[in-house]
Design a protein around this nucleic acid. Sequence first.
DNA 1: AAGCCTGTTATAGAATCAATATAACAAAAA
DNA 2: TTTTTGTTATATTGATTCTATAACAGGCTT
Lengths: 124, 124
Amino acid sequence: MLIEIDFNSEEALYIQLRNRIIMGIASNELREGDVLPSVRQLAESIGINMHTVNKAYTVLKQEGFVKVDRRRGAVIAIDEGRLEDLEEMRKELQVILAKASCRNISRQEVHALIDEIYESYGGV
Amino acid sequence: MLIEIDFNSEEALYIQLRNRIIMGIASNELREGDVLPSVRQLAESIGINMHTVNKAYTVLKQEGFVKVDRRRGAVIAIDEGRLEDLEEMRKELQVILAKASCRNISRQEVHALIDEIYESYGGV
DNA sequence: AAGCCTGTTATAGAATCAATATAACAAAAA
DNA sequence: TTTTTGTTATATTGATTCTATAACAGGCTT
């Protein structure tokens, strides 16, 4: 899986990295059991520091997307039943939809966008 | 309009403030032409620094939710045709829905949540 | 056994951001 | 005139982000 980083973005590098990997899982480019590159490898291939990658992996571990095996490195392992995430999602959506509503983006448009994105993650 | 701040949140105070005001506009608690409290007033009533409020207002001005009138202070004034926001929304939704997809939250559940939130903002 | 590659940890520095604290200014309102 | 408005400048504190070395133990390869 190709991981791209935008150095002009305001988003922290380790957050961009985390997001890319989560999106990789959603789009099935990364599957349960797949091994991520070592922190040193990935850091070098992107051109950033080892610790920045390590922080991304640590966050992914805490959030339940990855487990770390001393032998194999960081392995995709998804906690599927985390209800905290639903409340978190509600809060995030409240802000996003408030903005959308102010900009006269209709509910239909949002639904269409949701479908489009969900489609790209392989339906369900 | 009552503005509440969570001092335990990781979100910056000025971002929380901005979000509250945008949500206030969406829910029609704040309407075009309404005057926001002065930076000093609001700062005192919440118990934070004047500059933190000022930063929130400055961001709201840049994002096109508020205009500042020397006479009246900060006034709600919404730029309704900003297409940058649609692309921004797409990027934010991509991350949120990736997480949702990983947690087995179905597309239907997301649609229902969208409706619920949009409902609270008065339909459309 | 020796060397290499894992993740992990510690420490330190630079740059930026968040929040606070004073202070002052011009314009408008009381 | 005095108060209140937004605006601007400056400074300090603390946290965050990213980088840089360095070292360690566990596992793998040769």
